[in-house]
Simulated scan of single mutants.
Amino acid sequence: MKQEENIIVGISIGDLNGIGGEIILKTFEDSRILDFCTPVIFASAKAMAFYKTHFKSQINFYNINAIDKLSHGKVNVFNCWNDPVEIEFGKEDIKIGAFAIKSLEAATKALKHNEIDVLVTAPINKHNIQSEDFKFPGHTDYLAQELEGESLMFMITDTLRVGLLTDHVPVKDVSTHITSELIEQKIETVYNSLKKDFKIQKPKIAVLGINPHTGDNGVIGSEDDDVLRPALHKIKENGKLVFGPYAADSFFGSNNYKNFDAIIASYHDQGLIPFKTLSFGQGVNYTAGLDKVRTSPDHGTAYEIAGKGKADENSFKEAVFSAIRIYKNRVSYQQLTSNPLKKAPRKDRR
Rank of each mutant, 00 (worst) to 15 (best):
N114Q: 07
L290S: 03
D226M: 11
V293G: 04
H54T: 09
E181D: 12
K204G: 02
Y286D: 04
H213F: 10
G18L: 09
P274L: 02
G90K: 01
Y303D: 12
G14M: 14
E188V: 09
I87N: 03
A144P: 01
N65D: 15
A302I: 09
P212Q: 01
K95H: 10
I96D: 05
H299M: 04
R294H: 11
K276L: 06
Y333N: 09
V85P: 02
D224Y: 04
A47I: 11
V77E: 02
T38C: 11
K292R: 10
T27A: 08
K46D: 15
I19H: 10
N79D: 12
D348I: 13
A43T: 13
E184R: 10
K46T: 11
M153W: 03
L152A: 08
E5Q: 13
I124W: 02
I220P: 07
F61A: 06
I326F: 07
E132V: 00
K135D: 12
G215R: 04
L25G: 07
S44F: 03
Y286M: 09
N65I: 14
K195E: 13
S175W: 05
I124V: 10
V118E: 00
D35N: 13
N79K: 08
A49S: 03
A110T: 08
Q145T: 02
H299S: 08
V40G: 00
K172A: 14
A100M: 06
E318Y: 12
R349Q: 05
N17W: 11
N256C: 12
T157S: 13
A306E: 05
F89D: 07
C80S: 02
G149K: 00
A231T: 09
I24K: 07
D68C: 14
G239Q: 10
V174I: 10
